[in-house]
Design a protein around this nucleic acid. Sequence first.
DNA 1: GTGGTCTAGACCACC
DNA 2: GTGGTCTAGACCACC
Lengths: 140, 140, 140, 140
Amino acid sequence: MWYYVDPQSGVPIYVQLKEQIKKAVATGLLTEGEQMPSVRELALQLTINPNTVSKAYQELEREGIIQTARGLGSFVAKRQKGKEQEQKIALDKALEKLMIEAYQLSVDADTLHNEFIDKLAAWKDRLVKGAQNNDSGNRT
Amino acid sequence: MWYYVDPQSGVPIYVQLKEQIKKAVATGLLTEGEQMPSVRELALQLTINPNTVSKAYQELEREGIIQTARGLGSFVAKRQKGKEQEQKIALDKALEKLMIEAYQLSVDADTLHNEFIDKLAAWKDRLVKGAQNNDSGNRT
Amino acid sequence: MWYYVDPQSGVPIYVQLKEQIKKAVATGLLTEGEQMPSVRELALQLTINPNTVSKAYQELEREGIIQTARGLGSFVAKRQKGKEQEQKIALDKALEKLMIEAYQLSVDADTLHNEFIDKLAAWKDRLVKGAQNNDSGNRT
Amino acid sequence: MWYYVDPQSGVPIYVQLKEQIKKAVATGLLTEGEQMPSVRELALQLTINPNTVSKAYQELEREGIIQTARGLGSFVAKRQKGKEQEQKIALDKALEKLMIEAYQLSVDADTLHNEFIDKLAAWKDRLVKGAQNNDSGNRT
DNA sequence: GTGGTCTAGACCACC
DNA sequence: GTGGTCTAGACCACC
C-alpha cells in the first residue's frame, strides 16, 4: 500500500503511521471490516520495526479505529456513532481547536473561511450526508 | 484566575491546562507580554502537582505560546508569524484533522458547515481580519 | 437480548460486552448450559464488528465463563469450583483491588462499608448462602 | 525498594509492576509528589528491561497515578478528587465487579462479608475518614 | 542526569 | 499464520 514514513521528521514514526491510517479510514481507502496489513508485513514494507507498527496499531485500537484479534489480525472497526449530544460537544471542541490554531497561525477570518470551504468540498462525499445513513450503500 | 481542571476526566491534567491557556491567549484573556502565574502559585490554586504545571508550561514554551525567563517568570509570547507558505500548510493540516475528526464523529457535511459558520462568527474579532493585519502589510 | 454498547465511552466495546455477559451470568439472566447468541447474530444486533464479539467470546472462554463447541455455538459454562484455598486467594485479590480503587476515588471507609452492605443485600440471593452450597457439601 | 516481579507468572511484567505501584501509592508507601525511581534504576534493580518499566510508567501516567516530566523524572501524582456523583458511580461499578467475581468464585455471602470486614479494617487508616480531609495532616 | 523512541530479534499464546 | 511481550542496546530531546 501507500503508507510512507519519514524517520527524520521529528514526528515519531508511530504517530505518522497512526495519522495516515486514520486518514485512510476517513477517506474510505480503508473500509469497515477490511483487514489491515499484518504488523510484520507493514513493518517490512516500510522498513521499520514491527514494534513500531505494533505501537501504532495498539493506540488505534484504544481509539476505536481498528479492532485486533489475536491470531487473526487487525481490522478496521465499525465507525462509532455516539449520542447526538456527545457528538455535538466533540465537534464544538474540534472547531474550537481549529480557531485557536488559526489564531496562533495569524490566519485571518476570510482565509480560514475560504480554505474551509475548499477542504469541505473535497471531503463532502465522505462525510455522511444529512438524510442518508451509511449502510444503505447508494449515495445518489 | 479561572483555570479549572478535572482530574477524573481521563485527559491528562497538563493537557487540560495547556488547552485552557492556549484558549485564553487566543481569546485575549491573556495578552502579549503578560506575566503568567508562577508554577507554584498555579499549582497551589488548582491543588495539583507543581510538576504538572511545569510540564504544561514547558510544552507551551516549546510551542512558542509562552516564554520563560529564568528568575523572572513566564510571559505570553508574541504571536508567531511564519512564512505565508508554512502558514498555509499548517492551516491545511489543521483543516484535515478537523475533517477526519468529523468523519469519526459521523458528522455530516451540512452540520459541519453550519457549526463552522457559527463558531467563526464568535471568533471573527479575534482572528485578524483580511484588510487589517496586525503589524505586517495588507494582502487584500 | 438486551445488551448495549457505547462506542463513544472510551472503554473498548469488547470489554463492555464481556462485562455485561459476566453480569448476566452472575445475576442469572443467563443460566448454565444456555446457548449464547452466535457471534454474527450479536454483531448484527449491536451493529458492531463480528470480530469485536468474537474477541469478547474468546476472552470469556479463556476465563471459563462460556464454552465454545465448534459448529454448535457457545454456551454458558458450569461455574468453576476451584480449591477452597485458591478461592480465598482470588477473593483476597479482588478485595484488595476494591480497596485500591476506593483509595484512588478518595472514598472514605464508612462510605465504602455502607455501599458494600447495600450492594451485598442486592446480591445476597445470587451468592451461594453459607448453609446451602449449590452442589458440594455445606460448611457451616 | 521492594518491588518484585515474576517473569514466569503469565501476567505481563509491566502489569505486575503497575499493580504493585498502585498498591504502594494506595497504602502510603509512596506519597504524593514523591519521586519514583528512574526507569533505568528500577530496570536494573528488577533486572528487567528499561522498556518494560517505561511501559508500566506510561500507563500509570495515562491513569493519572504518576506524573512524568522529561528530563526530571516521574512523580506520584496528586490524588484525583472528581465530583461526588462520579465517585459514587465508579464505586458502584467497582462493587458490582466484586460481586460478579465473588459469584464466579462460588463465594457465599457470609464469607464475602467477613473477608470484606477484615480487609477493610486493614485499610481503614488509608481510606479517607468521613470528616477529615487529606491535607490537614493530623489524623487523631 | 531524565524519559521517549526505535531497532533487531526472541519467544509466547492463539488460530 | 496472527499479535503481545520482552530483551539489549542505541540515539534523541530536555535538564
